[in-house]
């Protein structure tokens, strides 16, 4: 079973067997097979076929708790519809949809996925993540999410295209993306779906990656995409709660449970009142720790 944690999402070019073979060893929570930007027009068909066969073979290639996501081509291209048809037939966990600009667009993709799920008798429900990479997409973001909640489990920013649309360039500080990031996080959190940050493109500068990841975590993002395997452990380390955080959260939840048992309205610990958001945060941390197997020995 997939564990639904999305700290790190590793992009893997869909036409490179060597990279697909070993994509599972770096600890990424999600492997994102790419059929879009990293694949030349001549090889769209072979990438589609390779990714399809890799998904069929997932039990041998990857651990069972890794989520397999496929970034398909946009429906307006000659490849989008065929991508969905072929890929849905082998039941990936999720689809990453590029350049979503309106609710109608997303609904259309969801409808196609629904039909294909029926056609191929897919048992699980395939979820989606929408990539917001234009001004229009960001403008319509709330509508997109509101209407797409039947399948939509996350939002992500496509920074390269977005900055181009904005008439600017990506910088190290990322000031140009601040508004988009904040808006995306705000909407994602409001509708309780994942907020996934864009990739960091300098694959050799792991320190700068770490700084950026810490920054976007502060903004409220729940995970980040990676374009190189070496980025995965840095991203994971930022989003993984520390042992002290886990311990603290477990104690808070215990205090909350005790207070509830005793019928106390106010929960206090070390002489300080614990309010609901703190309890929620603790629940989230403990939940993630459990999914990451921190409590395996006790269970």
């Amino acid at each position: 079973m997939m564990n639904n944690i999305r700290r790190s999402l590793l992009y893997v070019p869909g036409n490179q067997p060597a990279i697909i073979n070993s994509a599972g060893i770096y600890g990424a929570d999600v492997i994102v097979f790419d059929l879009e930007d990293s694949i030349s027009i001549d090889e769209k068909d072979s990438a589609r076929s390779l990714v399809k066969n890799a998904i069929i073979n997932r039990n041998n290639l990857y651990k069972s708790n890794v989520e397999l996501m496929v970034r398909v081509n946009h429906l307006s291209t000659p490849f989008g519809a065929e991508d969905l048809e072929e890929i849905i037939s082998v039941s990936p966990d999720s689809i990453r949809i590029p350049k979503v600009e309106s609710a109608e667009e997303l609904i259309k993709v969801h409808e196609i996925i629904g039909k294909l799920e029926k056609k191929f008798q897919i048992k699980t429900r395939i979820t989606t993540v929408a990539i917001i990479e234009t001004l229009l997409g960001l403008h319509n973001i709330e509508e997109i999410v509101k209407k797409g909640l039947d399948r939509l489990t996350g939002l992500t920013l496509g920074a390269e295209d977005f900055t181009r649309d904005l008439g600017t360039e990506r910088s190290i500080g990322g000031e140009e993306l601040l508004f988009a990031r904040e808006k995306l996080v705000f909407i994602a959190k409001l509708y309780n779906i994942d907020a996934i940050d864009t990739v960091f493109s300098n694959v050799f500068d792991l320190d700068a990656l770490k700084t950026e990841t810490q920054f976007i975590k502060k903004l409220g993002f729940t995970g980040k995409s990676a374009i190189h395997p070496s980025q995965v452990s840095e991203i994971n380390s930022v989003f993984t709660p520390t042992a002290a955080e886990i311990e603290n959260s477990v104690e808070i939840l215990q205090a909350a449970a005790e207070a509830k048992e005793k019928g106390l309205g106010v929960i206090a610990r070390h002489g300080r009142m614990i309010d609901l958001p703190v309890i929620k945060k603790s629940e989230r941390i403990v939940n993630m720790a459990r999914k990451l197997g921190y409590f395996e020995e006790e269970e």
């Binding site: 067997p17 073979n21 068909d45 072979s46 076929s49 390779l50 399809k52 066969n53 890799a54 069929i56 073979n57 290639l61």
Partner: peptide
């Protein structure tokens, strides 16, 4: 040094072409 799934995928692509 291709794994089986790669062989299948490449054959399928060539046949489709």
């Amino acid at each position: 040094g291709a794994l089986d799934y790669v062989l299948r995928a490449r054959l399928q692509t060539a046949f489709n072409r």
